[in-house]
Structure formats: structure tokens, C-alpha cells
Design a protein around this nucleic acid. Structure first.
Lengths: 333, 333
DNA sequence: ATGAAAGCGCTAACAT
DNA sequence: ATGTTAGCGCTTTCAT
């Protein structure tokens, strides 16, 4: 027994398929009696029009794709959740295009963009292949990037450099002079946060100890542990650590604890993102809050305008970050 | 300028569209010269066949849907990642069908199942609407559930009750006699873990203190905090806490710490799941490990068989859990 | 207000 | 080996 189609409804209702299509889509008026009969039949049979067929003829799918790494982190998970909600509000479905920061997966992702009838794109992770972005603008595919800016794509993000500057300044204001930075590589926010770190140090004329930025392969707590261990091995001991993400900070705190070093009594740690569990860590994490909710909302609002053929007021929306002082930072011992 | 289609390739190559279709799909043999010409054209133009059209005629999409809550937790995120990888290995794409544990979102999800041409379904969260499951079996839609079992759907999961039994037994063996349980509601694993809790207590003939299972609205650290606070208010003080999930355990530890109570010196806490960050918490969390990797792999293997029309060897695959003893549990003070 | 017919971009059965 | 034709399940002119 096959799924019921529009023809079945039409036949049972004794009308043409166009009639049924009309009541489904609420176009033009239809005799009330027939209309109700059709509606009743649809309900009884549980008929749902095939999206596939509909997408093909309408040349749109009411679905937008989000590109993100297949091992998306907690921050990204939260962002996805708000984007999904917001999209739902506008009547869109969300489909996931996973990339891996390698050429193959990016190519596959681009192929999906070409072959699936998506109405728009949200990128919450950068891809390396520049053609990717070029294709989007060249084909005029509605797309917005979140947490970064690339190739003039409409974007929403915080000022990572200023935020990092503020994080490090918080440490400096507390009295710290020897501050290390745990970071990973490959993304633009990565560079911006690093710039902020150096700039804060420079602007406080900290020359006593040279800045130490250590790079780890990922943004996981595990990588944070390795990064911190590396720092602990270096010749001068730091009294404060700036981690490029909260998850990295968790790892740093973990490693410190393993060495019997108390946070924040002996070493302060500050993160970046303010993901939901940061407020439940021991100690609660001092960090920079990214306005996740607002980022998601603004992104889909922009995308929605783009899809409707409207222009966006500003191509780059910069949102406010906020320093959240909790328990993992304190004056140096 | 529109996207290039199969017709364009055919015209430029001076062949019929079926020719092009053949080389795309590698069916039957095609003159080598023409074949190469077509391939070259495809490459030059960046042509990618429309999945929409292809799905429609082939009546399959090579994509499988995963149903999960829109605010999926860390455990589920990890599970999704392995499922995505495994599916990719078999040539499937993963699409997300988000549900919300309310009728509306479940209905919407069911509608998508009907209207989108998915090849199969993986459920990693239960839905309440029983018709949902009935539809799947009635229509013979390949589907497997992970972490739970419902309506005879092929499933892969651990024995939650035994695992909970083991968790609580670990506490008992340490010498604890007053053990509370923080849990949430609504899912079958929730009941199984609760049963395990009671059974462990009963089998140790613990009658000195009555068992206390407290129920919180979610599985978040925040809910864990509330649960723990509630427990702290009760008349007898517990020396150990069993949390139904790791995230709940994080919250419990947080709340204990806020009351100046040391974990594990004064109170022991054990979780369930062993999500990736549990090993980086302070203290590292003692917990029950679910074999996430294996769960995901087995699930897609089963699904793959189902899609191929084969039967699955066993309809219910029960995987081994494992008690992971770390720092959050100790002998009572 | 309603139906007939064309067509969306492909695949597959059927001819040749 | 290759082209012709008939759909897939809908929406949307265009007639009536």
C-alpha cells in the first residue's frame, strides 16, 4: 500500500488535482462545500503533499542549511538551537551541512548547496576553500555568516579582538603581569582574539614577562589540558591564563588542579563564549559572554530579508560582548 | 543566469540526456570518447544533478533523518556526531528532525517523515505520540531507536536498570547508606534508572534511611542544582547522590560546593553517560559509561540492513555499559 | 469556480 | 551503444 497522493484526494473528492492543490495552498477561492470535503479527506487519509515534488516545481524548499563542523562544540550547539527556533518561527526548516575543515568535505558541502533546493545558508564555521564563498556571491545565494566575516558575506558577530582585549585587561587590572594565552588555529576569530591579547599586554606596557601564546590542535577541554601542561613546563610561571574558548578553559583548570595549583588563588583563568555550563563549573568560570540568542536571531532576520529580495540595512552587524566575572579569576597571590 | 542542468550538458556534448544520466550514474557502458567529453563538461560547468529531481523519480534520497530534541544535550551531540560519520561512510546524508516533547512539534516531525523522501529514521529521543511509532511500522519505514525501546522498533541501548543498579551498588560498596537520586521524567530510560536505584537499595537491605528520588524538569546542570538544593533542605542528609545523567551531576556538585560541602570528602556524586567533559570536571566525575561510539555504529548498521530489505539478526541489541570510577565518589566521611 | 495541460529536472523502460 | 518516451507528484498557466 502506497502513500496517498494528491490524485487520490482528487479522485475521492470528485474534483481535479488543481482543485486540491488550491485548497492546500489557499490560493484563489474554492467552493466552500468542495473545500471542506477536500479538507476532510486530507485529514482522514493523513495526506501530506510531497515536499520533494513541491520543491521541484516551486524551485524552493523553505529550508535553509547551516554549515558547521561535524564535531560542533557546545557553543555551536547552543547557537544552532536558537537558530532552529527562530527559523521555525519564520516557517523554515533547518538542514545540517557538516564540514570537516578539509577539502573533501567542503566540496561535498558545496555540491549539496548546488543540488539541494535550499533557500538560504547560514555559516557558523569558516571553510578554507575560497571558491565556496565566491560561489555563494556569484550565484547570489542568500547567505549569512555568524561568528566571523569572510569575503564580504553579510555577517553577525562580536568584536573578538576588543573582547579579548577586555578579557586580558580584566586580568591586568586584577594585578596580573604574567599572562599566557591558550589558543587554537585556523579561524579568523582565533587571530582576532590573539591580537586582542597582544594589544592588551602592550597597552599596559607589560614587558616584564614576554607574552606567551600557546597553540593547541582543537578547542576541546582535552586540548586545554595539553596546552596548560605545556605552559606549566615553560620557564616562567604565569599567574593568569586567557583561554580562547570556555572549553579550552575547562581543560586548563583541570590541568592546574592536577598539578595541585589552586584556581583562582594561585592562578586565574578566563575563558571566552560563556556557554551554558560555564556557570556550573568548579570554580564558576569568568569569561566573555557572546550574545548567542541575539546572534542567532539577527542572523535569521538578515537571511530572511535576503531571501525576500530585500537588502540588509548593514552588511555586518557587530553585537556587544560582555565580561562576566565569576570565580575563576582573582588578584594574584 | 540559471544553474546548469542535465540538458545543458547533453546539448553541449551533442548527446541525449539519457547519455548524460548514464555516465552520472555509471549505468551500462558508454562510448569512451563521449563519456570523457561529458565528464569534462560536467567538470567545467560545475554541474551537479538536482537531488530534488533525482529523489522524486528514484523514490529515495540517500538521506536518513534523526529525530532528537531541539535542545539536544551533550550526550546526544556526541551520539549524533558518530552517527553522522557512520552514515557518511555508507553514503547517506543526515537530516535533523527536531521535536520538542509536545504534540505540535511531533506532528510536524511526522509530517516531514511523510512528505520528505527519507530512506530511514534514527530516533535518539522518544516521542509521546504513539501513532508516531505505529505509522513507522505500518508503512514499514526503516527505523531504529537508540537509547530506548518502544513499540517493538529495532533498538540499540544499554540496560539502563542494570547500569543504575551498578552505579548505586558502587556507592553502597563504598559504605554509603543514605543515597539520594536526582532524576527527570518522561522517558523510559528515566524509569529504568529509577528502578535500578530502588533495586540496588533493596538488595542491600538498606532500610535505615528511606530512598529519596527527587525529580527535576530537565537534564541540565541547572536542574541538577535545583535538585540538589531540594535534597539539602530535606530532613536527613545524604552522603551520596546518584544523578540520572552527567549534566545533572555537574549541577549537583555545583550546588554542594555552594553549600561548602566537599565532593567527594563529605558527599559522593555519581553520574550516568560519561560524556566527554566529565573527565575534565573538578572533581573528575565517577559515572556509568554508555558506549556511544558503538551505539551509533550498531544503529546505522541495523538501519542499513533494514533499508536493503534484509532483516536484522536481533531486533534489540543490548550494549555493555561500564562503571568508570574517578574522583567524585569516595568512602563516606 | 474549475479542469486540462504543461512542465519542474531528472531516471528508466523501451526502442532502435 | 544511444535516443525516445513516459513518468515521479506536485503547481501553475491557460482555457472554459
Amino acid at each position: 500500500m502506497n502513500a496517498v497522493g494528491i490524485k487520490d484526494i482528487a479522485r475521492q473528492a470528485g474534483v481535479s488535482v488543481s482543485m486540491v492543490s488550491r485548497v492546500i495552498n489557499g490560493k484563489s477561492y474554492v467552493n466552500e462545500a468542495k473545500r471542506e470535503k477536500i479538507l476532510r479527506l486530507i485529514n482522514e487519509t493523513g495526506f501530506v503533499p510531497s515536499n520533494t515534488a513541491r520543491n521541484m516545481v516551486m524551485k524552493r524548499s523553505f529550508s535553509i542549511a547551516i554549515v558547521l563542523p561535524d564535531m560542533f562544540n557546545i557553543f555551536q550547539r547552543q547557537l544552532v538551537a536558537v537558530i532552529e527556533r527562530q527559523l521555525d518561527y519564520f516557517g523554515y526548516q533547518l538542514v545540517f551541512f557538516m564540514v570537516n575543515f578539509d577539502d573533501a568535505s567542503e566540496a561535498e558541502c558545496l555540491a549539496r548547496i548546488k543540488s539541494e533546493k535550499i533557500d538560504g545558508l547560514i555559516l557558523i564555521q569558516e571553510v578554507r576553500n575560497i571558491e565556496f564563498y565566491e560561489y555563494l556571491v556569484q550565484r547570489n545565494i542568500p547567505a549569512v555568516s555568524v561568528t566571523f566575516e569572510r569575503n564580504g558575506l553579510p555577517s553577525v558577530h562580536v568584536d573578538d579582538e576588543s573582547a579579548a582585549f577586555e578579557a586580558v585587561s580584566h586580568l591586568i587590572n586584577l594585578g596580573h603581569r604574567s599572562i599566557a594565552f591558550i589558543n587554537s588555529v585556523g579561524f579568523s576569530f582565533t587571530r582576532h582574539r590573539e591580537n586582542g591579547y597582544y594589544r592588551a599586554l602592550a597597552s599596559a606596557s607589560i614587558t616584564l614577562h614576554e607574552p606567551v601564546a600557546i597553540s593547541v590542535p582543537q578547542f576541546t577541554p582535552e586540548a586545554g589540558v595539553y596546552g596548560m601542561r605545556g605552559l606549566l613546563l615553560s620557564k616562567h610561571q604565569h599567574t593568569a591564563i586567557f583561554a580562547a574558548t570556555d572549553e579550552l578553559a575547562f581543560g586548563a583548570i583541570r590541568a592546574l588542579k592536577d598539578y595541585g595549583i589552586s584556581v583562582p588563588n594561585e592562578v586565574s583563568v578566563i575563558g571566552f563564549d560563556d556557554i551554558d555550563i560555564s556557570n556550573f563549573m568548579v570554580p564558576r568560570l569568568t569569561t566573555i559572554r557572546q550574545p548567542i540568542q541575539e546572534m542567532g536571531e539577527r542572523a535569521v532576520q538578515m537571511l530572511n530579508r535576503l531571501i525576500s529580495g530585500k537588502t540588509v540595512p548593514k552588511n555586518k552587524v557587530l553585537l556587544e560582548h560582555r565580561l562576566i566575572i565569576r570565580e575563576s579569576t582573582a588578584v594574584p597571590a
